[in-house]
């Protein structure tokens, strides 16, 4: 469970990025965090992960307050899939990247090996095991990045734009994978169709405040609400097709 209570945050420039944010993500929930550029989505993620210090309010992960002293325990529970997989995959091969976290958390080499093999089989990525990270495609890299996080066996997964820059085929694979993950998930994205396919609940951020929090099916169908916060209905819910190019 992730709980944010009255969280406010501003960078050194002084402009408040988040203002009095409160929400709870219950175990097993899949929540989409949406909002226009600059709404504060990434900042919320960074605060939960302890990458930014929470100076006002409190964030708890499974009742553990996120703070300097508790970072190790908090991060043990959280897996974070970065938007840019190149920044996530810093080891030479997929295998070496996958064993990085388990070894750091003291899992034995034998157990890590078993875990990696089982995970690669489950995700259908066996052939990537010894491939070099710079040699695999964008879609494969995204799946491998998710695999490196799952190898940690986190209780909760945070994802930043998991379908960004993917072709439709790889996007569908990533969406199906997300849907099958049993963990608690918090996903930020501008891909509202993906949010609609994967999340039961949506939190809409606007100007650092929560503009709406409720069932995904309700919020993502509310055209007026979305447009009031510089967003649009998901493509699959738009009655009018995208205007076609005309000569």
């Amino acid at each position: 469970m992730i709980t944010c209570s009255n969280v406010s945050f501003s960078y050194e420039t002084g402009r408040p990025v988040l203002q009095d944010l409160s929400f709870t993500i219950r175990d097993g929930e899949c929540v989409g965090l949406i909002g226009a550029n600059g709404a504060g989505k990434s900042t919320v993620m960074k605060l939960i992960l302890g990458l930014l210090p929470c100076t006002q309010g409190e964030i708890r992960v499974d009742e553990i307050p996120v703070g300097k002293e508790t970072l190790k325990d908090v991060r043990r529970k959280l897996g974070f899939v970065l938007q840019n997989s190149d920044n996530q995959m810093f080891m030479p091969t997929v295998y070496e990247d996958m064993i990085f976290a388990p070894l750091n958390y003291g899992v034995s080499k034998e157990e890590t090996e078993k875990r990696v093999d089982a995970l690669l089989e489950k995700l259908g990525l066996q052939e990537l095991k010894h491939r070099h990270n710079h040699k695999i495609s964008g879609g494969e890299k995204r799946m491998a990045a998710i695999a490196t996080i799952l190898a940690m066996e986190p209780e909760m997964i945070l994802m930043d734009e998991p379908t960004a820059a993917l072709d439709p085929y790889n996007r569908r694979i990533v969406i199906n994978t997300i849907r099958e993950l049993p963990q608690t998930k918090l996903i930020t994205s501008h891909d509202l169709d993906m949010i609609l396919s994967t999340c039961s609940r949506v939190i809409l951020l606007s100007g650092g405040k929560i503009a709406a929090d409720g069932p995904a099916q309700e919020i993502l169908r509310d055209k007026e609400l979305l447009e009031a916060h510089r967003m649009e209905l998901p493509l699959c819910l738009q009655n009018a097709a995208v205007p076609l190019y005309q000569t």
Binding site: L82, F90, F100, N104, I149
Partner: peptide, 19 residues
């Protein structure tokens, strides 16, 4: 960002090299 990714996967001053 790379360093953050390492930290979030349990890196803490001690690097575990490939076995």
């Amino acid at each position: 960002e790379l360093y953050a990714s390492m930290l979030l996967r349990g890196y803490h001053e001690h690097f575990h090299y490939a076995p």
